[in-house]
Design a protein around this nucleic acid. Structure first.
Ligand code: ZN
Ligand code: ZN
Ligand code: ZN
Ligand code: ZN
Lengths: 162, 162
DNA sequence: CTTGACTAGTTATCTTATAACATATTCCTT
DNA sequence: AAGGAATATGTTATAAGATAACTAGTCAAG
């Protein structure tokens, strides 16, 4: 769909991008026997509206507007489900969540966060993960999960900023 | 002092470890003309008491007990100073702070967080940083800051857990 | 139909972080 | 040494993020 993460920062047909991701997520849920209920599905659609991360309360506001519950656990639970099953990621640096661009595929995401436009891309992280494990190995540490996030400027926001 | 991060997870003379780090930090502050005031110095000492990350409110409690202000900004400001000048790091995954083991040296820290004992080590991150930049390059993204954190099990906590 | 697993909603509370303002200290300039 | 700018410390109040604990609806298996 977007194996090398180039989409987020390039102009593209986002309606197709979003629909593709949604269809893909649905197929994965179906295959795994997961219940992509209305709130969960809507939460994912909301995340998929842009290549940016959204706070839980942003998602909550949107859900509430549309007739779902207005209390924090409504959003947190939907987001937790999405993250747990790989439909979304949590971006710790931003206290926020973003739709996963590769649902169903095992991958270590590397997040690239543009500090100017808040754009978010998911770069391939296999090499970074390997380097990290090699760095942890000599200490005898067994890595189970990792979060790798970079803040900087996306191509568009570098213009006139050199 | 601890170039390869092996200290945190190995038994060692921590009093010497702490004093060395403190002395080093003082020398750096002196050299840079930074004011390591009583709150700031005490906050750093508190962080240096263990190889674990502490929440801002934990640090605040300790400071308050010792006669400093009892309001959040007291701790947040001291910690902000320490982070800004490289005496401490912020661990996003934990919403917490830890003393830097290499103050004064330019480095990209890789944090290894033990989920069993809360131990925290700072592994060398040069290779990881390089891999990350190489991953971001093809997207035209200019990396400015990065946070690289891994959760897993330290050597001691792997015993009897295989 | 009833039971048990799961989902979604609520209220209440906790934790983490910052804004805005008042006071005190430091340090440079004269 | 005195004045004044910049820095540092303290306060109150509030914003922002997250979870605990409980209630009630859904739905399929038995
Ligand atoms: Zn898109
Ligand atoms: Zn941008
Ligand atoms: Zn030590
Ligand atoms: Zn451990």
């Amino acid at each position: 769909m977007d194996p090398d993460g180039t989409l987020a920062f390039a102009s593209h047909d986002h309606a197709a991008c979003r629909d593709g991701a949604m269809a893909h997520a649905e197929a994965v849920a179906e295959a795994k026997g997961l219940r992509l209920t209305p709130v969960r599905r809507r939460a994912l659609e909301i995340l998929l509206e842009s290549h940016q991360a959204l706070g839980a309360y942003d998602v909550l506001d949107r859900l509430a507007e549309e007739g779902f519950g207005r209390q924090p656990p409504v959003a947190y639970r939907a987001l937790e489900f999405l993250v747990e099953h790989g439909f979304a990621h949590r971006i710790r640096r931003l206290n926020a969540f973003a739709a996963c661009m590769h649902p169903g595929e095992a991958h270590v995401p590397v997040f690239l966060i543009c500090s100017a436009c808040n754009g978010l891309a998911e770069a391939p992280g296999a090499a970074v993960a390997t380097a990290l494990r090699q760095s942890a190995g000599p200490l005898g540490f067994r890595v189970e999960r990792m979060s790798i996030e970079a803040v900087g400027l996306c191509p568009a926001c570098q213009e006139g900023d050199e």
